[in-house]
Design a protein around this nucleic acid. Sequence first.
DNA 1: CCATATATGTCAACATGGCTGACATAAAAT
DNA 2: ATTTTATGTCAGCCATGTTGACATATATGG
Lengths: 144, 144
Amino acid sequence: MELLFYAYRDFTAEPDAILAKHKLGRAHHRVIYFVGRYPLISVSELLAILRITKQSLSRVLGELVREGFITQQPGQRDRRQRLLELTAKGAELEHKLSESQRQRVARAYRAAGAAAVEGYRKVLSGMVDDDRRAKLPRNRGPRA
Amino acid sequence: MELLFYAYRDFTAEPDAILAKHKLGRAHHRVIYFVGRYPLISVSELLAILRITKQSLSRVLGELVREGFITQQPGQRDRRQRLLELTAKGAELEHKLSESQRQRVARAYRAAGAAAVEGYRKVLSGMVDDDRRAKLPRNRGPRA
DNA sequence: CCATATATGTCAACATGGCTGACATAAAAT
DNA sequence: ATTTTATGTCAGCCATGTTGACATATATGG
């Protein structure tokens, strides 16, 4: 439990510093991250992932759209949807933000070894609620 | 990264619900947790762990002291210090809060196996900043 | 002993990012 | 044609972070 707190705390610290330069917060990071991870994601799916209210999301998402980090487009099958995608500018920021985290993860992975990483993933998955765990993308192998 | 977000999100969800009944928030939980973990911890050490300002801590800590969850006592060697300890009431709340988390961790541990847990700890430790990692307590073995 | 540094507390103002509740619109589904 | 769904928006509230300034008691070093 303690470990998880420290890891999360330190994991978010560097991106927070970068975000501050753009006058953005951690909430923006989460949106940028998941839109980058799941291009053309719908607003409701994003809400389900973040587990916040649409009013909370709206503020943050609105800013990102206005500042040109994210674009919205109507869904093809369902035109009520406003599917979200990163712009080039958004992708660039996403990359910068992820960079420090990737390095941190990579360092931890190298120090711990492949077997440890396997276990790490297993345990973390086990802590996620069942409904979300079912939707987890399969491990795509070492990315560091 | 995604996994870590979900795990942390779901890890904090249940305690949050319990805390709400006591009109407390996640910030209170963190204080209660670390005071329980390190009895007679000093305010400055707690600040170093949480990485928040003393003004932020003061509000939360003050409430916990006023509500009788935590007591303060002057340090013996250094009487400027106000060493923190859980009261019986505080310990009881701490236990309740940790209960759901312990179960979640235990479930994940069982599902993943001992070897996976070992790896999990290794990787998480590797993500923690060096200065704090040096102070991590040694793994005390299965507690679930 | 005195000067300075440290541990802690406190007041005030402000920002971020959650929340609830109410209401609106367009498109899909029945 | 009606109802449901996906989304947006306004308004106000709360929790928890921030900075800056200042106060007090005790420890520490010349």
